[in-house]
């Protein structure tokens, strides 16, 4: 266990995001998480794709690999398979991870290789100057959708859980209070951890999450879920979620009104993918924290469990397999 502070995880490189970008806050959250969780710089690798978020490895004093658009999970899989001892993180965005790289993300989640994936969702293409992305809400005005986008938006949580994810969590970029802890939950999960971070692109999609993230409304707009605890939220903790068995949907209710008591409120079970899916898709409030965490063997463990990790046979012998014609004297 190293005794490093978050500053030890910063590099000498000038951070080049726009002033006020949500990425600054996430960078700080990551550096804090690494320090708090005792990550060792020499045994930690950050792999990223292309986009604003993907510049992050340059700003972290660990090993880092800034790769190509959408393919970070592929490179990270190679790194982790080649050396399962390494702590491997993937930094991606909604365009990188869910548009051009959707296929890789899907298969990475399905395999459950032990990577920690941070997806910065700002619902827009930032680095290419503001085009709508696969998570943009219908009607998003952008240079490529001047009349408003007409595509349905992808929900990252729904995608991940549908792909067979074993860990899904969500937080807001400015939430320094919970972010480092959540990242360390992701780190300690044995398998692919997928964290969606609602990130504010100050230039091209400013305040798109304001209704969720703004300080004055956050308490009513967010529900922070905890395993084994009732799904309650609100400034005075009187709001809660119950399951409507007729619609199979989560229903926001107020404890003490219409005969609702705490006993009616659903208790969070993070091992239940069906509940996680309902929570992931819930709007008003938006669910934060660890929505899903379930046990499944990590891919690299299964992979190396069925094959030798060291050379056990010399080529000399292999050359002589099958039928041999021996003409030596």
């Amino acid at each position: 266990m190293s005794n490093l502070s978050f500053k030890d995880f910063a590099t000498d490189q000038e951070v080049r995001w726009c002033p006020g970008c949500g990425d600054y806050s996430i960078l700080k959250g990551v550096q804090r998480a690494l320090a708090d969780g005792g990550s060792e710089p020499e045994n930690t690798v950050f792999v990223s794709g292309i986009g604003c978020s993907s510049r992050m490895p340059y700003y972290l004093n660990t090993y880092g690999f800034h790769t190509i658009h959408g393919r970070a999970p592929g490179f990270a899989t190679g790194v982790k398979l080649a050396n399962p001892e390494l702590e491997v993180w993937v930094v991606t965005g909604d365009g990188d991870g869910l548009s051009i790289g959707g296929n890789h993300l899907l298969h990475t989640l399905r395999r459950n290789i032990n990577l920690n994936i941070l997806l910065f969702n700002n619902e827009i293409y930032g680095l290419t100057k503001g085009q709508y992305s696969p998570t943009s809400r219908p009607g998003t005005h952008s240079p490529t959708s001047p009349q408003g986008s007409v595509e349905a938006a992808l929900q990252p949580g729904q995608f991940a859980i549908g792909a067979g994810a074993t860990f899904f969590a969500r937080c807001v970029d400015i939430d320094q209070k919970t972010m480092p802890g959540l990242f360390n939950e992701a780190k300690t999960h044995n398998g692919t951890s997928f964290v969606e971070i609602l990130q504010n692109c100050i230039v091209y999609n400013k305040d798109v999450f304001d209704d969720i993230a703004a300080k004055k409304t956050a308490a009513e707009a967010q529900i922070h879920v905890r395993h084994g605890e009732p799904l309650i939220y609100g400034k005075d903790r009187t709001r809660g979620l119950r399951l409507n068995p007729q619609t199979i949907a989560l229903e926001p209710v107020v404890i003490g009104q219409d005969g609702i008591s705490l006993d009616d409120i659903l208790v969070h079970d993070e091992t239940n993918p069906t509940l996680a899916l309902l929570l992931a898709n819930l709007q008003g409030p938006t669910a934060m924290g660890v929505l899903l965490r379930r046990e499944q063997p990590a891919f690299e463990t299964s992979y190396w469990g069925i094959r030798p990790s060291q050379r056990r046979q010399k080529v000399e012998q292999l050359l002589r397999t099958g039928n041999l014609l021996d003409r030596r004297n």
Partner: peptide, 28 residues
């Protein structure tokens, strides 16, 4: 595979080369 090679069937051609490059980065 006893002779010092591990094989990995990736989800597509791109992921395959990316994993190979990732492996090289990690020292294999």
């Amino acid at each position: 595979e006893d002779a010092g090679v591990a094989t990995y069937q990736a989800e597509d051609e791109i992921a395959a080369i990316c994993a190979a490059i990732g492996s090289s980065y990690a020292g294999k």
